[in-house]
Design a protein around this nucleic acid. Sequence first.
DNA 1: TTGTGCCAGATTGTCAACAATCGACGATTC
DNA 2: GAATCGTCGATTGTTGACAATCTGGCACAA
Lengths: 244, 244
Amino acid sequence: MAFSDLSTSDVGALFERVPKATLRAHIVERLRHAILAGDIPPGAPLVETALSERFDVSRGPLREALRQLIEEGLVVTVPYTGTHVAELSVEDVHEIYSLRTVLETFAFEQVWPRRDDRFRAELRRRNDVLIASIDADDDRASILNELDFHGLVYEASGHKLLQRAWHGLRGRLQLYWAAHHRAHGRRGPKRDSHDSYIEAAFGAEFDAMKAEIADHMRRGVETTEKFLRSMPDLSGKPKRGVKS
Amino acid sequence: MAFSDLSTSDVGALFERVPKATLRAHIVERLRHAILAGDIPPGAPLVETALSERFDVSRGPLREALRQLIEEGLVVTVPYTGTHVAELSVEDVHEIYSLRTVLETFAFEQVWPRRDDRFRAELRRRNDVLIASIDADDDRASILNELDFHGLVYEASGHKLLQRAWHGLRGRLQLYWAAHHRAHGRRGPKRDSHDSYIEAAFGAEFDAMKAEIADHMRRGVETTEKFLRSMPDLSGKPKRGVKS
DNA sequence: TTGTGCCAGATTGTCAACAATCGACGATTC
DNA sequence: GAATCGTCGATTGTTGACAATCTGGCACAA
């Protein structure tokens, strides 16, 4: 990028096919980030005119971006009435974690027979990165790093459909954690929360890994459930008449 | 619906909130049906102007409908270049079936402890419906009935996220079967293909059910693989310059 | 007071015109 | 003859204006 103006033709194109970004794609990213970072809380209205002004685009691309986020489950809409950021119920969280248990186990099942040392090393590395962000008290980074840690298994599985499914779950998880973070100030994953997880990954018994995944999810859903019950309304209602 | 014109106010609205359908929603349905029925084969170009004329809408709603189908995995697009119906590779089919094995097992795991007699009866009923359409030599109905049969487990699980995941898999499966049907004339699911499946569902051992699901999928991926290899190009290329 | 109907504002849905980009074809040059 | 460059048609991306619909509140009557 830094040397793209050295010549008329795009030098970068020599190395990789990179289609010019569309406004829509840009909006999807920015809007998704705004939602997942908690800038626009669950339940908050997403008025098209307001957003198109905020992002300085017309409503066309914006609406298409919204469609995409709707399909990702981050946004819900009612025809002719309104659009708002999705809210998470206790049942939703249960569903996320139960499905995640199944998918993550399956992902490990794909990786396991390969006894991939590079994978394990990277797992350790990402945990170190996570710990570093915890030590630095950077909650937002901690959330992303936690997700990246678990995301590795899905990447390593090489299973595109599985990765897609993880993407859907990941977004919803992030949605919840952002709310948690906003409410508590600190999300508070323990420094050692992945110790046994990694230990199992380096072990020889797949059943142990399987049990560890289930246990990790159980812990996750526990904290989550407690938090959600203590905070019946974490949404940004009312749905209408707010200028964002 | 039959009595909606008996009075000025919509009588149906008394019982259920039913927002007026939008053009976009209509297009999504029609386009999805056209693709899944094989009217527009995998790889065929989806030119916006042609489609907007065919469905008699402007490009706005049409594009939004396309976004949705893209997110469902039925359509792929390259910015400024073109859009076409997704194609299925052998790897894709493997991924579909492997993930489906996991999800369907999980779905059964949810239903199993309830020992739900209504569920089992319905399972039998849907199999009868499937057999009827096979006997009637109605291939298109057979495909839908086969999917409906398996869909019951996901519905019965009551797991919304799981149902969503099944929806994604279902579309891709249908995409393949439509191609299969178009190429072979007959898809040919056996009349008795679900006998052991149902037997296991009525049995007491969950492990037997689990094994049966895996076996069912193994048979599916086998047929599928053989077919795809025998037919390296089932797409409707070229991607550009065709009026559909 | 309670219920009912209507009205106005807000919001999303739809459209048609215009701009940006891409891919292929052919002219041109060495 | 091969490679390169420019041009042109096709296609998608973007915009602003207009239409359809919903929600909430207010006037009015029982």
